[in-house]
């Protein structure tokens, strides 16, 4: 089976400035991928390369086994049969919702157009808005129209550029779930760009973390969270703090907060200095534990508190605690460690 999208050693520079460097990945038939990274990391540029808005300096983009772009060969955007949703949707202001949705399929026979239109309107729940103009729609409605428009021609791949960025936070999660089920239902391979990891976790089968024009890691959300391959990825994904430690053997690390047991993914020699990532969910609250720490900051998150704790030796840790354990600032609380995935990086010093 062909990958729906295959990127090989892609590099892009604009006006001498390197934007993307040596990026390779493949995306399966109906997978949903997210490109995750801070602003300016090149994720939107990568999306534009796939769409065909940028011409590559090096490498190759293929869609469904057909080479779309390499330095000697370029298929224009309009012939790639891709769907794209832009950051602020960019609906055509001079057309109503129907016209917007059917824009890309205007060449079909009228009854086909109507068939597809009805299907999409139903799929996106736009029945009540079909005759409205874009400026009469709310942000969420605009986003659905933009998606429906992009999906109308049954694109080979769907590219979404920060599709939730201009929506209310409450709307984001419900839409993300909804969208995921729609995409799965329509079985279209999708790449979505976002800087919000929760969105990425909610949507993606697979996530690519980008920084400084490079693809740092291409992995499932679970592996990315629990087994980040670089310090940058670890820093960017999830929350947590680093503690210094020293390798004892293949399963044990000695740290300032005691010995930690777990599976160490890479080969480290005994005695090697390392940094260990401690996630907030690795630290459990236990009133009976002898190990205590002072609450220095607390952040209410509904079901949980995120406590920032100071150990006796001055180290800071974070802990997620069910929210009925409401402790005051500077109050000592008991904690214990429950670390399944030991994330270790070499300590290269400050």
């Amino acid at each position: 089976m062909n990958n729906s999208i295959e990127i090989k050693e892609l590099s892009l520079s604009i006006e001498g400035r390197s934007i993307l460097e040596n990026i390779s990945f493949g995306l399966g038939e109906i997978e949903i991928a997210c490109l995750l990274g801070p602003s300016g990391c090149g994720k939107t540029s990568l999306l534009r390369c796939i769409a065909g808005f940028e011409k590559l300096n090096h490498g190759e983009v293929s869609i469904k086994g057909v080479i779309m772009n390499n330095p000697n060969h370029y298929i224009p955007v309009e012939q790639r049969n891709i769907g794209m949703v832009f950051q602020d949707y960019v609906l055509f202001p001079h057309m109503d919702v129907r016209k917007n949705i059917t824009f890309g399929i205007a060449d079909l026979k009228p009854f086909r157009i109507k068939e597809r239109l009805d299907e999409l309107i139903e799929l996106f729940g736009l029945e009540a808005h079909a005759d409205k103009y874009p400026h009469q729609l709310s942000g969420g409605q605009q986003q659905r129209v933009a998606l429906a428009r992009a999906m109308a021609p049954r694109p080979r791949v769907l590219l979404l550029d920060e599709p939730f960025a201009s929506l209310d936070i409450e709307l984001r999660e419900s839409l993300a779930r909804e969208l995921r089920s729609i995409l799965k239902q329509d079985s279209v391979a999708t790449i979505m760009v976002t800087h919000n990891q929760l969105e990425a976790f909610a949507m993606a089968d697979i996530i690519g973390v980008m920084a400084n024009g490079k693809l740092m890691q291409w992995d499932t959300p679970f592996d990315l969270y629990h087994e980040p391959k670089t310090l940058d990825v670890a820093n960017f994904i999830g929350e947590g703090t680093f503690v210094k430690g020293e390798i004892i053997n293949q399963t044990d690390v000695k740290t300032d907060i005691g010995n930690i047991k777990g599976h160490i993914p890479h080969n480290y020699d005994s005695g090697e200095k390392v940094q260990v990532l401690i996630r907030p969910d690795d630290i459990l609250h236990d009133d009976d534990s002898k190990l205590t720490a002072l609450v220095k900051e607390k952040e209410f998150r509904g079901p949980q508190f995120l406590y920032t704790l100071e150990m006796k030796n001055g180290l800071f840790l974070q802990s997620l605690v069910p929210s009925h354990h409401d402790h005051a600032i500077n109050e000592p609380i008991g904690i214990k460690m429950a670390i399944d995935h030991l994330v270790v990086f070499p300590d290269i010093g400050e």
Partner: peptide, 9 residues
């Protein structure tokens, strides 16, 4: 650009 992704030259 949107119109190009929707097949317009």
């Amino acid at each position: 650009e949107v119109s190009r992704t929707l097949g317009c030259n």
